[in-house]
């Protein structure tokens, strides 16, 4: 029986899941754009991003344009973990339908 205890705890948190979803949809989100899209505070967003970077799921790229800009993208293991997370959710739904 598949259940929620098997879900990746790093991803299975509302804020971090939203970040992972955005980055899975399109790479190269800037901090500002992500903040606006997710309606998160600076502190909240940076905390979640740090957790995801520490877990090896998200990579940070700093660029020097007219002003320093940081963008974020999923790493290979981040994408794999996200896909595994979705597969598990789908598995839970499927097993309930049987």
């Amino acid at each position: 029986m598949i259940d929620f205890s098997q879900l990746d705890k790093t991803i299975h948190e509302k804020g971090r899941l939203a970040i992972m979803t955005l980055l899975a949809a399109r790479a190269g989100w800037s901090f500002q754009d992500m903040k606006v899209e997710l309606k998160m505070s600076d502190g909240n967003l940076i905390t979640h991003l740090r957790t995801l970077i520490k877990g090896g799921y998200v990579a940070e790229t700093r660029q020097m344009k007219t002003r320093p800009q940081t963008s974020y993208a999923l790493t290979r293991s981040g994408r794999k973990a996200f896909e595994a997370y979705l597969t598990l959710l789908e598995g839970i739904v499927r097993s309930a339908r049987r």
Binding site: D3, F4, L22, R26, L89, I92, V93, S95, A96
Partner: peptide, 20 residues
Amino acid sequence: AAHEATEQLRAIRALMERST
């Protein structure tokens, strides 16, 4: 659990569509 998983998948899909 299945209901929560369905809601979670729906939220992921909505966010993906909205952002892309």
